[in-house]
Design a protein around this nucleic acid. Structure first.
Lengths: 217, 217
DNA sequence: ACTTATTTTTAGTCTTGTCTAAAAAAATAT
DNA sequence: ATATTTTTTTAGACAAGACTAAAAATAAGT
């Protein structure tokens, strides 16, 4: 049986593996977990002994197949609960994260599979992130970041990279939501800011914003 | 903020206060919590310092008003989740307890109030136990145990005292469910076993069974 | 009342997960 | 190549919550 802390470490390492290739550094984990490197070293030893990750002193860590499966399962739970909160309990997409962070640790196979069915086997969470299946497989974010589009390109908004409450609230205010059609009216080469059109309305967004929105072309 | 362990102690003491009047003994708590008396002493001190219960060495413990409120809130969450599991996720009434035991510790005011609304503000959980409102008030079990009925008495099954999986499965097998009309055909004075009728069907039940079923006359 | 039994508390230890401070290994710079 | 900086690990300590063993307070028995 997995402790709460172990689960959180696995999840963090899984997410870090997405961006960085190769072994994950102890410091990177410490930063993500808001803890100290020495604490990470201890936990890494423990997870390593359990066969959930591979690690040699002073080299980075990498999840084993089993470790990945456990992590994907936690993420599956997190994202299914997020769908539940938004679709059934009227939460907004910027409110769900903290609660899902708790719910993801509830242990019951039946619970999560029934929840999946109850929600109609959703493929994405409210932020557009893919929901892994029972075996940890999920449709990749093959989609592209808005910032990579050029003048006159069109697409559909399918996800966000940053799920912070403040970012999501900004999007709500601008009328930027998943599923909306978007067209790049103009792009400023100097700072990569762009003028976009959503539903007849045109406005400017900075590169920082465009860098956190996924588009399906 | 309340730890998981503190919450479980409060809940246990709250439940014990239902049956026993007066201060709850350290040993009684230890037994209910499956732990040792010495551990209970430590926790009692902690809860006492937090103003959640009153205690003097070698005397029993009793929850303060605030302690009761906290406990009732945990029970509220537990029972609402049980309703959710049975009504929405197709759990049977003997499967819900362990999962609800985990879910009851999720911290989010909004979550529980939205869940309450989503379920249609239920008044009872799947075992017939009353669900406290936000202020900790709940309709009492003014109902009577089946064992107290006499020959030819009639009533409606409204709850169970024992919620163990084995007991609930036995009831399912016998066709004994909440809401069913019941009539006492005969009662054996020697061992208090009774012959009862539910839906034209008559059968015998022992005192032990009759002692764990609540009836509304 | 005084001895015996029970209950409760204290004292000290253990585990998990954290921390700080210092040592060791690896990476970088000159 | 050697000195310096950065990263990682070790060593030792601490808090929460549990345990065991023993002491202290209360209750019961005769």
């Amino acid at each position: 049986m997995m402790t709460l802390s172990e689960e959180n470490y696995l999840k963090a390492i899984y997410h870090l593996s997405d961006t960085c290739e190769g072994g994950i550094s102890t410091n990177a984990i410490a930063e993500k977990m808001n803890t100290k490197a020495s604490s990470v070293t201890d936990m890494i030893k423990k997870l390593s002994e359990k066969g959930l990750l591979n690690y040699k002193r002073y080299k980075g860590s990498a999840l084993t197949a089993e470790g990945k499966l456990v992590a994907a399962n936690i993420i599956r739970k997190h994202r299914l609960w997020e769908v539940f909160l938004v679709e059934k309990l009227n939460f907004t997409w910027d409110e769900v994260h903290d609660v899902a962070e708790q719910l993801e640790h509830i242990k019951s196979e039946k619970l999560i599979n029934q929840l999946d069915e109850f929600l109609g086997f959703p493929k994405r969470d409210p932020h557009g992130d893919p929901i892994p299946d029972k075996d940890g497989n999920m449709s990749d974010h093959a989609d592209v970041l808005l910032v990579t589009l050029n003048k006159n390109d069109k697409g559909i908004i399918v996800g966000v990279k940053d799920s912070s409450s403040s970012f999501l609230k900004y999007l709500d205010k601008q009328g930027i939501a998943l599923g909306k059609k978007i067209k790049v009216i103009d792009k400023e080469p100097f700072d990569n800011s762009m003028k976009i059109r959503i539903k007849k309305e045109e406005f400017m967004i900075s590169q920082q914003i465009a860098n956190n929105i996924y588009i399906k072309k």
